[in-house]
Design a protein around this nucleic acid. Structure first.
Length: 159
RNA sequence: GCAGCCGGACGGUCUGUCGCUGGAAGCCCCUUCGGGGGCUCAAGAGGAAAGUCCGGGCAGCAUAGGGCAUCCCACUUCUUAAUACGGAAGCAGUCCGCGAGGGUUGAGUAAUGCAGAAGAAAAUAACAACAGCUUCGGCUGAAAUGGUGAGAAGGUGAGGUAAGAGCUCACCAGCGACAUGGUGACAUGUCGGCUGUGCAUCUUGGGUGCUGCAAGUUCAUGUAAACCACCGCCACGAGGGUAGCCCGCCCAAUUGUUCGGUGGAGGGUAGAACGCUUGAGCCAUGAGGCGACUCAUGGAGUAGAUAAAUGACAGACAUGGACCAACGUACGAUGAAUGAAUGUUCAUCGCACAUGGUGCAAACAGAACCCGGCUUAUAGCCCGACUGCUUUC
RNA sequence: UGGGAUAUGGUGUAAUUGGCAACACAACAGAUUCUGGUCCUGUUAUUCCUGGUUCGAGCCCGGGUAUCCCAA
């Protein structure tokens, strides 16, 4: 199989420090209707901050290391009151990303930074999978365009 | 057949492609030898997982002991790990339903207090009206009638009387005593005196430590102000602790509080592992019991995430009701023919069933330490008991 | 996930064993004025919803709904 369609636990964003940094402000964000996407660049060699330095030291010899992109999915309780609907929305978003992640990964091949992504749901009604899939494709294409055209859209991440 | 009521069971199935989570006794690759990755294999949400209304397990802290207060519970007898939450079978009242049934209330009232407005009066009754006497001002008797109110001194009828009254009698409601039946709540009968309603305090009986897996344990990182021990100085005090009070107990003029110093111990932050899933559990059979339930025997059985897995897409089948099609069967209505008549035959219409096709519907809802109960939300379907109406025999 | 609290006009708050739902501001209408403001008068409530206890419920007791707070 040429296109990698897996989405493991290691590609999920779980560190509280990185999440706080991501939502602290100054990071680029964009809306694609059912979703709002916040993303942030991180240095690949682990000099970005104190978040993962020791882990990178451990795995320097390993070629795999950390994945190129870590993601986070968030569905607020205010929009969907029932846990069933929240779970379904998260599953739809995860599925759409899983099937379209090759767009980003191909663009990031050979670059010297990694990416942290957050998908936030901004709709009140449950969409179909087709709608989510369509807007996910559009959003990922737009992100790759931005990354290639603007070399440094986010000066905060260098500090 | 239709409508209903009570109890119980269930709450989609299968295939393909791509994925997620933890596990393994397998195989392969990498390795700093700690481990990591891939393949394969079998497993992976509920009847309510929900609300958090109760209780228990489990964990930590506290705790010599006793009494009172606070707080909780309250028809009876059982039942459960569980006093309270609950469950079963009953008792008494009340409301709804034609009924099967359903809802709801119920420890006691000896004492004390309160009961707005209305009303004469809300409990030592007397406004109008009644009766007797009268100097016509009133006095006396009595509590049936009127009006107010949720509630007006047991109710109805008869006797009785100046007028009246449980004053007397019969029946009824309530209270007490006795007898009988029942484990009991109570029921029935006899006798007695002659009886207001509601709430609270109260009385009686029983019970009650606090906090909750973000509990708690371990590891790594790491060093504050709170805490403990010792020392010092100035000032104040005779007591302090024991969860509210008292007794009791413990410490205490060699002390306590405040302040300063030294030492011990380790708070916060970010993280990993354990706790973490076999539990008062489930199913079957037999026995006991009206029943809830209990006992015995046998059997099956890997959800365990942590910014939080159990999914996405495509298709098939089953289920439900809707529409359409043609034909068949059964029933009913109308019309025609025939016949003295029941009837028979034909045509049209309606309805039901079976067949095929089309598209539709398919609920409520997602484990987070575990368990039991309750409550709430639920499309549809099945089983059993029973009720009402209609039809046939 | 585990604990806990609240809901009263448009807004902010009251309401004493349970007994006529009150106050301020705002809005609207009227009156006053040549007009506007001030002042005066009036109107605006199914006490979050729904059952129960009671003669009577904002208050007491069940069950829902919504909002908020605390604990890493």
């Amino acid at each position: 199989m040429i296109v990698n369609c897996q989405l493991k636990k290691s590609e999920r964003l779980t560190s509280q420090l990185v999440i706080e940094k991501l939502f602290a402000g100054g990071n680029a964000s964009m809306a694609a209707f059912p979703l709002r996407i916040v993303y942030m660049k991180m240095r690949k060699d682990g000099k970005n901050g104190s978040d993962g330095s020791d882990e990178n030291d451990e795995k320097n010899g390993n070629l795999v290391g950390k994945p190129l992109v870590s993601i986070l999915v968030s569905v607020p309780k205010k929009r969907f009151r029932h846990a069933v609907d929240r779970n379904r929305m998260k599953r739809l978003i995860r599925e759409a990303y899983r099937l379209n992640k090759h767009i980003l990964w191909n663009a990031l091949e050979g670059k010297d930074y990694r990416l942290a992504l957050a998908f936030v749901c901004i709709t009140d009604t449950l969409p179909t999978f087709y709608a989510v899939n369509k807007s996910m494709k559009k959003a990922l294409v737009r992100i790759t365009e931005r990354l290639t055209t603007f070399v440094n859209p986010n000066p905060n991440s260098e500090l």
